[in-house]
Structures are given as C-alpha cells and as structure tokens.
C-alpha cells in the first residue's frame, strides 16, 4: 500500500517524530511505500539543520535523513517553514537572509503537495503536536 504521513509536532514538544519514524520504518519493513512525509505546523522544525543532539539522546534528524536517502520524500510546508525560519538556500537568496537552515534531504513544498500525496495514496496518517 501507499502511505502519506504527516508530522505536526516540534522536536522535544511531542512524540510526533518518534512515532512517525518508527511507523515509517515498520511500513518499509513490510514492503509498503511511503509517498511523502509532510511536515506541517510546528512539525517544520524537524527539518532544522542547526539542531545539536544532546549526548545520550536519539539523533532524530539523522534518522529522518536516512529515510530520505531511502527514497522517502521529506516535504516541509513552505508557508509554515519559512515563517518559522526553516529556509532553503533558494529562499535564503530570495529573502536575503544570512544563512539557510533546511537540513539536507528535506525540501520546501506547497500545501498542494500534501493534498496530491493524499490523492495518490491509500492511507493518510497524522502525528499531532
């Protein structure tokens, strides 16, 4: 089956990322396809490249990026992302900011990409803030 996942929670504010990652890994292990993981609301902070993992804690960013390397699209809501400071190199240039902050393997996309993923998949699962 094809799945769309949505992550709504910021790091350290909910289990949103842990749930989404663990389910994503289990889905792939059972030969399902994840069309897109959509980061919405405060979930956009999951894609911040500047996060430093405290010693002894799980590196969730690397785990997302591993999924990205396995072909899962990590899509960050562009409207929600840029207003919260999650910007790609392209947006950095457009808005003349000093540095970009979008981690590798993530992309900024419009809300249309959430809806089109939903339209093209069999299941939509949301992990709230």
């Amino acid at each position: 089956m094809k799945y769309t996942l949505a992550i709504h929670g910021a790091p350290y504010a909910s289990q949103s990322a842990q749930h989404g990652l663990a389910l994503a890994q289990a889905l792939l292990a059972q030969e399902h396809t994840i069309e897109r993981v959509f980061f919405f609301h405060e979930g956009v902070y999951q894609a911040l490249s500047t996060r430093v993992v405290p010693q002894g804690e799980e590196d969730l960013l690397s785990k997302w990026q591993e999924l990205g390397q396995h072909g899962v699209e990590l899509a960050v809501c562009i409207a929600g992302g840029i207003k919260r400071g999650v910007i790609s190199e392209e947006e950095r240039q457009r808005y003349e900011k000093q540095s970009s902050s979008l981690a590798e393997h993530f992309t900024l996309v419009g809300l249309g990409q959430l809806i089109s993923a939903i339209n093209e998949t069999d299941r939509y699962i949301e992990f709230p803030a």
């Binding site: 089956m1 663990a22 289990a26 889905l27 069999d122 699962i125 949301e126």
Partner: peptide, 19 residues
C-alpha cells in the same frame, strides 16, 4: 508493537488522530 500497528493501518480507513 509497530509491526502490528502497520497491520491495523492496512485493514482500516480512514485513520483518525485525536490529540
């Protein structure tokens, strides 16, 4: 566990979150 979670998502729709 998460493997069982997957099986439940295969068998049901819609999947509704309550938070």
């Amino acid at each position: 566990d998460y493997a069982d979670f997957v099986v439940l998502t295969e068998a049901h729709n819609p999947i509704v979150s309550w938070a």
